[in-house]
Design a protein around this nucleic acid. Structure first.
Length: 218
DNA sequence: ATCCCGAGGG
DNA sequence: CCCTCTGGAT
């Protein structure tokens, strides 16, 4: 594909948005949660871990520590044991405890609804903050995780590796109201089709808009 | 740049 | 065995 002009790329991005909507009309957050606090905890646990695995451990976690107040007083060893299958369990337990203590101490026991406040919590970066904003508060947010990074790079909607730079590129290309649902659809697409190891370009709904198959002979 | 860390697939 | 899975802190 010859070098693409900015306006051509913008038009292509909009076609991709439409194709994704048709291919994944029901895409949604795959984590199981009730309310902002549970979503925050589930999203911290989802780092480098499948959502499926997270959903297996969270019912017991939420049953045992249902509120920020309860979680803030949790025994670290018990929490570590409950979340152990998700990996990185010491850091994650520490993050969940510390973040919960901050919710109680600095945010009146509830999850704040702004990016600036959320990222001050231990274990919460832009990606996690945007998941909470988009799904618990209805504030548009692009959640640049491993799937968003891989798929958008293959689509040549960004050249960057740094998640924050990718987020800025996508903010220019994807209509603001679509940010949250676009993230869900790209993540689903990354799981079922645009696989990390071997993308299934033959059956990809975005094939006509993607330079990857031509460049990699499939 | 490196570390955390378990589990599943090829 | 190596890579990947809804990252973040040091």
């Amino acid at each position: 594909m010859a070098r693409e002009t900015a306006s051509a790329r913008r038009a292509r991005a909009l076609r991709i948005v439409r194709l994704l909507a048709k291919a994944y009309p029901d895409a949604a957050c795959a984590l199981h949660y009730r309310g902002a606090f549970e979503l925050l905890v589930a999203t911290i646990l989802s780092a480098r871990c499948t959502d499926k695995k997270v959903n297996e451990v969270t019912p017991a976690v939420f049953a045992r520590f249902p509120t920020p107040t309860a979680m803030a007083q949790a025994d670290p060893a018990e929490l570590e044991r409950l979340i152990q299958p998700t990996g990185f369990y010491r850091q994650k337990a520490q993050s969940i405890l510390s973040a919960s203590q901050d919710l109680v101490g600095r945010f009146d026991g509830s999850v704040p609804g702004t990016l600036e406040a959320l990222v001050t919590l231990r274990g919460v970066g832009r990606k996690t903050a945007n998941v909470v904003l988009g799904n618990a508060f209805g504030v548009p947010g692009l959640t640049v995780d491993t799937h968003m990074t891989r798929v958008n790079r293959r689509l040549a909607l960004t050249q960057h590796e740094d998640p924050e730079k990718i987020e800025l590129d996508l903010m220019e290309l994807v209509p603001r109201k679509e940010w949250t649902i676009y993230s869900h659809r790209v993540i689903q697409h990354g799981r079922v089709c645009c696989d990390a190891r071997r993308p299934r370009c033959e059956q990809c709904p975005l094939r006509a808009e993607c330079p990857w198959p031509e460049q990699h002979g499939s």
